[in-house]
Amino acid sequence: MKQHLSNPPEASVQKKIPSGKLGRFGKRVIRNKILLLMILPAVIYTIVFAYYPMTGVVMAFKKYNYRDGIWGSPWNGIENFRFFFKSGQAGTVIRNTVLYNVAFILVGTVTQMAVAIFLTEIRSKHFRKISQSMMFLPYFISWVIVGVMAFNIFSDDFGFLNKLLVAMGFKKISFYITPKAWPFILVFFEMWKGVGYGSVMYLAAIMGVDTSIYEAAALDGCNVFQRIFYVTIPSIMPTVIILFLMSVGRIFKGNFDMFYNLVGTNGNLFNYTDVIDTLSFRALISSKDFGMSAAVGLFQSVLCFITVVLANRLVKAYDPDYALF
């Protein structure tokens, strides 16, 4: 509504179109025709490649079969949702999923921002470039290989960490039957894998900050730390918040690749490591029920949708410009 106040309809424009709601709308369309044209390809793309297949969510309420297809298959009510809650693990996995995502968001954002800020403050050009390139390497290491490496670090026999412990005169730790260690391990690997990719986003945001603000801050006698906290961080807040909101939009979705490759089918660790996606994978691996997997996906999506709408509203109350939509 604010919008309308700040941009009052231009009353002076000739009344070609009859006044009233439609008329005002029409006039706005004409005034923004170039911008609308610019956005049109993306809109068409989204309708064709995202909204059209999105209709497949009805599968969550269907007893799917090949012959009748998605739309022709008989309805199945909410039957497809039941197995998830009947498994007795629903509470645990929802809790794990959310807690892991919260930890990932916090740790990830802090390390990525810190790296980005430090990288811009470091004097040596070569050091900046080389260290930044090095941080990008984990992005290319697939979770499958991360799983292999984790095994090399934590396993009993050739685990690097256990070799170290033994060399230092301690007893071996059997990490793969010690569930409590895993939240730390998983958060570490997520941080490690995302730091290069994530920090680039903040780096680009920092590059976009007008350098004259820095000069002004320096003239005002700010030290570097003050400058970071009062100039740099506030300037990249829009990026931080957008990324935060997008992460919140996935808060009920677990990164299957990561959990599956690091933990696998190790039931001993599940109390601390099982997430919604790994549970439904295990439940459906032999029956491969299309409807049930669609149901779990829809359940996650709805929860995410509610959460992100609430989060967005909070952000909007703080500053409408930062909001996602």
Partner: peptide, 18 residues
């Protein structure tokens, strides 16, 4: 019994292999 089947499969993972 597809609901029970999926739920049983999910529950097995936690205990059976260990």
């Amino acid at each position: 019994v597809s609901t029970q089947f999926a739920a049983v499969e999910a529950a097995m993972g936690t205990y059976f292999d260990p």
